[in-house]
């Protein structure tokens, strides 16, 4: 058990750190080291030959980019195993699922209470009645590529977007939908 916890700790650490901590980032990113969120975006200003750069809400340079200089690979699919009680907070899971900067599940999946349901993935309005185990749902959210290598669903766990507890909370929320 200590060994598996250590593996999780290492996995969590690498996910949270910039993948190229000891290397320079690609030179052609819209990146401002002086800004808190680092990632910036260009805003054309009327009747001006200059661009204004605004800070993005999130530092996106931590993940692989489309720059030809970027030597960071896509992280391979991670198989994870949920054991023990779920201990998820469904209420918090709902907040995470409907937060566009975290789970953002509702971008693709219909969820209760959303007047603009996404249809990129299957509707999850009653997913709690489908008979999926907690462990299955946990794996799907952590990294669905294990089950379907060509999936378009983000690998939330592998890419360090959602933590172990975040995913437990979302599983609890999904299991509550009936």
């Amino acid at each position: 058990m200590k060994i598996t916890l250590l593996a999780l700790a290492i996995g969590g650490l690498t996910a949270a750190m910039p993948a190229v901590a000891d290397e320079a980032l690609p030179s052609n990113l819209l990146y401002d080291a002086g800004k808190e969120k680092k990632t910036v975006w260009p805003l054309p200003v009327k009747n001006s030959g200059e661009l204004k750069y605004n800070e993005h809400r999130q530092d996106l340079s931590k993940w692989p980019t489309l720059s030809y200089e970027d030597k960071r690979p896509t992280k391979k699919a991670e198989k994870v195993e949920l054991q023990g009680p779920l201990n998820g907070n469904a209420e918090n899971g709902k907040k995470l699922a409907m937060n566009t900067q975290r789970g953002n599940c509702w971008a693709c999946h219909a969820l209760p209470g959303d007047v603009q349901p996404g249809s990129g993935g299957p509707p999850l309005l009653n997913v709690g009645t489908w008979g999926y185990s907690d462990a299955h749902m946990y794996q799907q959210i952590w990294d669905r590529r294990v089950a379907n290598p060509g999936t378009e669903m983000p690998p939330f766990g592998t890419n360090g977007v959602l933590s172990d507890q975040d995913i437990r909370d979302i599983v609890a929320f999904l299991q509550s939908l009936n």
């Binding site: 598996t4 593996a7 996995g11 991670e78 023990g84 201990n87």
Partner: peptide, 14 residues
């Protein structure tokens, strides 16, 4: 389910 939460993350390949 067991009382302890345990996850075996296959992080080594990554």
């Amino acid at each position: 389910m067991k009382t302890s939460a345990r996850i075996a993350a296959i992080a080594l390949s990554g």
